[in-house]
């Protein structure tokens, strides 16, 4: 991480501002999507946009794009464990008799 920072020296401004613009665009998109008659697709669409926002923030603001493997492992395991929780809990609630 340190070595790469020294060699590449990305700008202070460019990355964050682009990310910020993307985030606000996605926010607007999400509000618009919420108002459209999308039926069952509305929720997945909203969540997908929110997930995109989370990814942009994670990669650019939280610098997962240039983080050590250790940090990435950490983020990935949080995600995996959350999936585990959702999958197994829904395995019950969706099939309850």
């Amino acid at each position: 991480m340190t070595r790469r920072e020294q060699t590449e020296q990305p700008g202070i401004w460019l990355g964050p501002i682009l990310a910020w613009a993307a985030l606000l665009t996605l926010l607007a998109l999400n509000v618009v999507l919420a108002g459209l008659p999308l039926g069952v697709f509305k929720l997945p669409a909203n969540l997908a946009v929110a997930a995109l926002q989370a990814i942009v923030m994670g990669l650019v603001f939280m610098r997962l794009n240039r983080a050590s493997w250790l940090v990435r492992l950490c983020a990935v395991s949080a995600f995996l464990w959350i999936s585990l929780m959702f999958i197994l809990a829904f395995a019950d609630t969706l099939t309850r008799v």
């Binding site: 202070i12 964050p16 501002i17 910020w20 985030l23 926010l27 923030m57 603001f61």
Partner: peptide, 17 residues
Amino acid sequence: TALLMTSSLSLSVASRA
């Protein structure tokens, strides 16, 4: 939401600075 995203921008700049 917009406020928070903007605050993320400013703090991100602060951290890079």
